[in-house]
Amino acid sequence: MNPVNYLYLAALLFTIGATGVLIRRNAIVVFMCIELMLNACNLALVAFSRMHGNLDGQIIAFFTMVVAAAEVVVGLAIIVSLFRSRHSASVDDASLMKL
């Protein structure tokens, strides 16, 4: 199978994720979309690894997974505490971080 097709799939997944981040208000959904974008990147990296015949891409993909896991831990904790204090998981409600 042509590895380029995996790249198309990765681009598609990334676009879906990016669109989700931009248009959805629910923090959980935004979060899932970010995960989608990360995994699209992983897919692309693995595909590149395959195309170029070295292992660098796969190693970086593992890095990304670890970082993503850490990010999930911190991000979910923030979302949960935000939900507790505001009783909503909408990202637009949390707009206090401005000058």
Binding site: A18, V21, L22, I23, V91, L96, K98, L99
Partner: peptide, 13 residues
Amino acid sequence: QNGFARSYAVSMF
């Protein structure tokens, strides 16, 4: 800097 996370995301993209 309006504080909306998604507008920051737009500018990033």
